[in-house]
Each structure stands twice: as structure tokens, then as C-alpha cells.
Nucleic acid binder design. Structure first.
Lengths: 141, 141
DNA sequence: ATAAATAGTTTACATCTGTAATCGGTAGAT
DNA sequence: ATCTACCGATTACAGATGTAAACTATTTAT
């Protein structure tokens, strides 16, 4: 139930570890060099912070560590998307998701999955979403 | 085309101004008191920062200011959702959107709108989304 | 006219983030 | 047995963020 935050830079590291683990700091750094002009020290700092935040686990391997994710990408994504969703009136969430779909490239398969979920959702969808905003923070009222 | 960031606390203020404008700092603070235990000074600081960032415009009105948004909520939401989308492999965006739909309450109308957009999208949807990740940051390869 | 209430501005200060250099210990090379 | 390369840990430091007190100028009530 903790709500530790993964910063954007830290996220870059997490993505590497989610993709490959266990993995060493050296390897993480090597991979990220393709994308970020970070010194090895920078990557190590981020790794250290992620360990402290409990997002990475360590396994001693000789004089070094092997890192593995302590949280899944999906969990973290749920967290992150939750933050975004909380920034708008619940009644505006549909619009937000529309915007996201519009601005994304999605495959036929993706779109079909979405259709299915939407179909499901429709079974129990309310006529109108309740707005939980305080007066003055949205125009629903 | 600049990329000034609206922080979570600042976002609370923006939502008030998006809802009602022009509006005074006093009124913004009064509205937010319902939700945040902020001192008037805190709200003023956030307003000041938003003005400096160019997210709010001011119009002198006697000894005080009337504030109005300099960016729309939709623009800002697009920005914010773009950040989220950029945190995952393009090929995983569909899954992310699925998660968001699943964890949200959407009205029949919302769902129908989404269906329409998806229908449109399907006309030009690729069989598979191209992955733009560097090797090691996603499992597509 | 003076005092009290206000409005915005400046300053404050701890934490988080981005980015990195340096330190301290140890495994491997000579 | 030393020296060197390398690992994680510690320290650094500026900018962003959360939260707010203090300051300055002005308006309004007494």
C-alpha cells in the first residue's frame, strides 16, 4: 500500500530491469547509453535510489550486485496512470482516454481488445458518472 | 512548443481557474480549502509560480489581480498524458489504455464514444505497432 | 490621520530529482 | 605482497516542489 514514486529518470532504469533481470549496474548503464548521455555514476545513483525506495531487489554476486524488479511494470503503470486519472474530474475521464487513444498508434489487435473491454464495461456502465469534485474544480455542477 | 510542467499541487490551482475565470487569489484559496489544508500563502505561492510559468494570465483589478488560464485543460491533459504514454513501449500502449479503462468508471455515453473512435481508428490501424525502444528496454525484440 | 486589514512579492526551508565526482574496499594483475 | 581497476556508497550541488512566514505597499475602517 506504499506509494513510493518512480521519477522519469528512474523509470528508464526500471524499464531496463523489467526487460532483463537479474542484471548488473554495468549492464544497465551500457544499455541506457543508447538513449541517455549518462555517466556510469548517474546510473548508479538512480539504481541506488530505486533500491532504497524498494523498487529493486539486490542479490550479492561476488563483489557486485544483481538487480531485479521488486514491483512489476504493470503495477507501476497502474500507479502512474492512477495519478493522471486523479487529476481530472471523474466525469472527464472518458474524454481523457479518448484523447489518449486518438494520439496513439494502436494495432488492430489492440483496438479489438479495447472493443471487448468496452463491451464488457457496458454491461454495468452507469448512465452518468458521479462527479466527486469539490465545487469549483469542475464544471459538472 | 515549450514544455513547462504543471506540478500536482499547481494542477489543483489550475483546475479551479479552468472552472472559473477570471478569479481572484482569495477565491481560489477559498475553493481549495474544501480539499487542501493550505494556508492562503501556499495558494499564493502556487499562483505566483503558475504565472511565472506562463500558465496563468493576470489582469489588474484595483489593488488585486484577476487570474485566467493561459492554457486550456485539454492542452495540459494532452501534455500530461503524453508523458505517461512515453514511459512505455509503443507496443504496450494498448495495454496501458486497457488498464486505464478497466480501472475507471465510464458512462454508457463515454463507452459509446470510445467505440466510435476505435471504429475510426480501425480503418487505418496497422497489423502491428512498430516498437521504437532501444534494445533492452522492452521485450518486443 | 492612523491603524488595521489586504494583495501581491520575497524569502525560507526541507525534500525530491537530475546529474555526477569522489571515496573506501576488494578482486585481480604483476 | 602491491598496485590497479572496479564495485557500491557517500557526498555534491543546482533546480523543482510542497508548504508557508515575513515583507511591502495600499486601502479601508475608525
Amino acid at each position: 500500500m506504499k506509494d513510493t514514486q518512480i521519477s522519469p529518470s528512474e523509470w528508464e532504469v526500471m524499464r531496463v530491469v523489467w526487460t532483463t533481470h537479474p542484471i548488473t549496474s554495468k549492464e544497465i548503464s551500457r544499455i541506457l547509453n543508447e538513449k541517455k548521455d549518462w555517466k556510469l555514476a548517474t546510473t548508479k545513483t538512480l539504481i541506488g535510489r530505486l533500491v532504497k525506495k524498494g523498487m529493486l531487489t539486490t542479490a550479492q554476486n561476488g563483489r557486485q550486485y544483481d538487480y531485479s524488479p521488486a514491483v512489476t511494470e504493470d503495477e507501476s503503470l497502474k500507479e502512474a496512470s492512477g495519478h493522471l486519472l486523479n487529476q481530472v474530474c471523474t466525469r472527464k475521464v472518458g474524454e481523457l482516454i479518448e484523447m489518449m487513444i486518438e494520439s496513439s498508434t494502436l494495432s488492430i489487435g489492440d483496438l479489438e481488445s479495447l472493443e471487448n473491454i468496452i463491451q464488457m464495461k457496458k454491461e454495468n456502465a452507469p448512465e452518468v458518472v458521479a462527479c466527486g469534485c469539490i465545487p469549483g474544480q469542475c464544471t459538472c455542477s
